[in-house]
């Protein structure tokens, strides 16, 4: 799971593509995700908009849930789900939840920070199965590198 961050914002924060960051919203919690540095979300004020995809699972607020899947059905690529932190707001007429936009804060992941947020993670040893298998690297995590894709 990743968060797309504009290069200007990444420069300011001192993070590189592939670094772990913590994304928190106003009152629902935080997720531990990888930074993907790209100008794609570059249309907010001062390039401070971020984007997270959904359709991820297997990790809940930093804790791996892999052993809870039935044997042979563990997902290969896992990550924290953004749905843990989307807004509490909903439409009063239809009760449709607001999952598309939220105020968020991005911070570089430090052991101190993840401990404070009660994430059960040791950043020294934390890896994703997809990283161990060397898979999912065909897209750059940092477009500033200008490396060749494919």
């Amino acid at each position: 799971m990743y968060v797309e961050i504009h290069p200007n914002m990444a420069d300011e924060m001192g993070i590189d593509g592939g670094d772990l960051v913590v994304v928190s919203t106003t009152d629902r919690g935080s997720v531990l995700v990888k930074a993907r540095i790209t100008p794609r979300p570059g249309h907010g004020p001062e390039e401070e908009e971020i984007f997270l995809p959904f359709h991820w699972g297997g990790i809940a607020k930093g804790e791996s849930l892999l052993e809870k899947y039935p044997d042979g059905n563990e997902p290969f690529a896992i990550g924290d789900s953004v749905n843990f932190i989307t807004s509490r707001g909903y439409d009063v007429e239809t009760q449709m939840q607001e999952t598309k936009a939220a105020l968020a804060k991005v911070r570089p992941a430090t052991q101190e920070l993840v401990d404070e947020l009660n994430m059960d993670v040791d950043l020294e040893t934390f890896t994703f199965p997809q990283d161990e298998a060397g898979f999912g690297q065909q897209k750059d995590f940092d477009t500033r590198d200008n490396t060749t894709v494919q």
């Binding site: 100008p39 298998a133 060397g134 898979f135 894709v149 494919q150």
Partner: peptide, 16 residues
């Protein structure tokens, strides 16, 4: 195999 790309999407000028 997962890491073999018989077809692959190349993205250029990402985000521009």
């Amino acid at each position: 195999p997962r890491d073999e790309q018989r077809i692959s999407i190349s993205t250029m000028l990402e985000g521009e």
